[in-house]
Design a protein around this nucleic acid. Structure first.
Length: 724
DNA sequence: GTATCTATAATTTTT
DNA sequence: TTATAGATAC
């Protein structure tokens, strides 16, 4: 069967995972266990031994991972000409669904020319919906409502389902907004990210003939990072596999870090229940990290209670110990990292060997400054930022308006930029006419002569209407020509020519967009404007990382999943940052997810790992005392190298008297782990909520049954720990 | 109808 | 610290 090259050099379990082609297969792949190697070879083997390439559907977590997988399969050089005829489907859940909706969406009320609404489009529609049901955005925060709706969609609850299960006033109100929001999206023929999944899952559920056709089309399924799938994704996977059951999922419960986005770890834990005949393969040998790093990782993750026990092992040598650096503040933290990287480079190492991970994006600025000042090249994973720029969104608004005339968000934005005398009142009149006539806003623009109310403004709208009609009349490709036409004919180019300076040049950005379109044209001989728009709507931060580049990579811990670097720094190992405050205050399970996040970061390192924490950190303009992360105390103490604060070199703000130092050393906060029960002489028994530093003292917050939450200064409180 | 200013709020992680 | 929404001035 197949090509021997595909199984060369594999261990027994790896070989099993590659060659057991039919039936349900669960691959529990520990960090660094060669999983990518296994799934690429498996995909290649499937496509050469038992199926046509286009009968294989491989689903990855990011576009980046999809691209890499495609390259690696090509590099295997198997299958020869077979690749040309029908390409293997390698995509993310979202891009798969986006494609399927274009083909089958009408069955769930989505027109083929639908457009994808990003977070800010979603925000503006939500605001409208909140207003339309008679609420005020001051009392009903769009953020909160968005989160609730997103959560509902991930659980496949439509507005009606959600309303049915809504219990309290808050949920019932959200249900009204959800209903309105969804109606508005449908009216604009738009889908948000969550809709892509929910609609396809519903489609597969309600239309057996489509489900049958698709499971015939995709005879073999391969799903990576299965621990991070949500319910809608689970349904899609299940329904696609239901007739042939050739479903292989890979993942690692210890690396589940997206519960906040609706991911349900039970999907992977229950795989064997869903498919009782499933074969399970465990990959537990780690080929990536040194003994020291692996030992730290194992020690850390063993603190999770809700966990299937698993032991990673390595044949690699122990190597240098994991370092923990205590720094005065975030400036010193960044400086020390920069100096360390410089030392590495001076010794002949490459900057590209190193990566810096952090919990929140907000901490990047100081790191960037330090690297820039030291002349160290760096890259930051934030690809969406380009598409979030104002001038880019302006151009894209025109394109969306051309593709989908009902896309009100886009039409309104395009009509108003550059300013051409179309204001609020005119827009309202267009909207009113559209809804009275039962047409889309785009059509209303095309039929301005029929709109009585538009007397003087008609002259202002006419050129815009003409432009849209002209662009719409162009052939759907090459896309580059369309983008360029929009740019030149809309007046955007002219208005940008005047603006801009050296380090922020919108005109340049906009031309970069034209280049991106031209590049797309070259790579996709059959691509259309709609396809390109779909593709750029789904780019993520991680997609932009250049792994072969010669620069230090900065990214969030979430973005780091699936990658590896010889040298890793993790910054901000502090309570309230990692674990994040939201998790500390939240349910018990959330701390475990933070720990898994930390574990993911640690296991990215191959040779050298440095964890840092600062005693003081400025957060949104205010410098605060911090406490070392509990996770640091969970590392094997005798194996790590602890670097205390270097008091001789004081580059910190404290030195300049910008804040008062606090003498909190030596306080054992670990005794008061959140969740522990304590006894207070006056208030009786209570539960520890958390420990926090404020000003010069450290406080412990306790929740008492009768008294509610109270804080005590740790130095003076008379609290007894009760064994639980 | 448009531009500018001010106040205000809010900050986890991402397809 | 930063972005954004709303108010105000032109």
């Amino acid at each position: 069967m197949g090509d021997d090259r595909l199984i060369d050099g594999l261990t027994a379990p790896q070989r099993e995972a590659v060659t057991r082609l039919d039936g349900p297969l669960l691959v529990l792949a520990g960090a660094g266990s060669g999983k990518t190697r296994v799934i690429t070879r498996r995909a290649a083997l499937l496509a050469t031994a038992v199926a046509r390439p286009d009968e294989v559907l491989a689903i990855t977590f990011t576009n980046k991972a999809a691209g890499e997988m495609r390259e690696r399969i090509l590099a295997l050089g198997v299958g020869g000409g077979a690749w040309g005829r029908g390409r293997m489907w390698i995509c993310t859940f979202h891009s798969l669904c986006a494609r399927l909706l274009r083909e089958f969406g009408q069955a769930v009320g989505v027109q083929p020319c639908y457009t994808i609404f990003d977070e800010s489009d979603k925000r503006s529609v939500i605001r409208e919906a909140i207003g339309a049901v008679g609420l005020s955005p001051d009392n009903w925060r769009p953020r909160t409502i968005e989160a609730a709706i997103s959560d509902a969609k991930n659980r496949m609850l439509g507005p009606a389902d959600y309303a049915e299960q809504a219990r309290d006033f808050s949920e019932k109100t959200i249900a009204r907004v959800y209903d309105e929001y969804q109606a508005r999206l449908a009216g604009q023929n738009g889908c948000d990210f969550d809709d892509l999944l929910m609609h396809v899952a519903t489609l597969l559920q309600n239309r057996p003939e489509i489900q049958a056709e698709l499971s015939r089309r995709f005879r073999y399924l391969l799903i990576d990072e299965y621990q991070d799938t949500n319910h809608a994704q689970y349904q899609i996977a299940t329904l696609l596999a239901s007739s042939h059951r050739n479903i292989c999922v890979t993942g690692d419960p210890d690396q589940s870090i997206y519960a906040w986005r609706g991911a349900d770890i039970r999907n992977i834990l229950d795989f064997e229940k869903d498919y009782p005949d499933a074969v399970t393969v465990r990959l537990e040998q780690n080929y990536r990290s040194s003994g020291a790093i692996l030992s730290a990782a194992s020690s850390l993750i063993s603190n999770n209670k809700l966990r299937k026990d698993k032991t990673l092992w390595t044949e690699k040598e122990f190597g240098p110990p994991v370092r923990i650096w205590e720094c005065e503040d975030e400036l010193e933290e960044a400086d020390r990292i920069a100096v360390d990287i410089q030392t590495h480079c001076a010794a002949g190492g490459a900057a590209g060997d190193a990566a810096i991970f952090y919990r929140v994006n907000a901490v990047t600025r100081v790191l960037e400054d330090a690297l820039r000042n030291s002349g160290i090249p760096y890259q930051i994973a934030r690809g969406v930022e380009f598409y979030n720029r104002k001038e880019i969104k302006d151009v894209i608004a025109y394109l969306r308006a051309v593709v989908n005339p009902a896309d009100e968000v886009a039409v309104v934005r395009a009509a108003g930029t550059p300013t051409r005398g179309i204001g609020k009142v005119t827009i309202e009149r267009l909207k009113t006419f559209a809804s009275q006539t039962g047409i889309s806003i785009g059509e209303a623009v095309a039929r301005i002569n029929e709109i009585e109310t538009l007397k003087p403004a008609r002259k202002k709208v006419a050129p815009f209407a003409k432009l849209i009609a002209q662009i719409r009349g162009m052939p759907p490709r090459p896309v580059g020509d369309i983008v360029e036409a929009v740019l030149l004919n809309s007046g955007l180019e002219a208005s940008l020519r005047a603006a801009g300076d050296v380090d922020n040049n919108p005109l340049e950005n906009v031309y970069e967009l034209v280049s991106a379109a031209r590049q797309y044209d070259e790579q996709n001989p059959e691509g259309s404007l709609a396809d390109w728009l779909q593709q750029i709507s789904l780019v993520s931060d991680t997609d932009a990382i250049e792994l072969t580049g010669g620069s230090v990579t900065l990214m969030t811990l979430h973005a780091a999943k699936g990658l590896e670097f010889p040298i890793v720094y993790m910054v901000g190992l502090e309570e309230d940052l990692l674990p994040h405050r939201r998790a500390v205050e939240g349910a018990d399970g959330e701390i475990e997810e933070e720990r898994r996040l930390c574990f993911v970061g640690v296991t990215r390192a191959m040779e050298r790992l440095t964890l840092t924490h600062a005693r003081f950190r400025m957060i949104r303009g205010v410098t605060e005392r911090t406490m070392a992360s509990r996770f640091l105390a969970e590392l094997p103490a005798e194996e790590v190298e602890y670097h205390e604060l270097e008091r001789t070199v004081d580059r910190s703000r404290a030195h300049r008297g910008e804040y008062n130092d606090a003498d909190n050393e030596g306080i054992d906060v670990s005794r008061f782990q959140p969740g522990r029960t304590v006894e207070h002489p006056e208030y009786g028994r209570g539960r520890v909520l958390g420990v926090e530093a404020r000003g010069k003292s450290v406080y412990v917050r306790i929740h008492f049954e009768n008294e509610g939450a109270r804080s005590f200064a740790l130095d003076y409180a008379t609290l007894d720990l009760i064994e639980s």
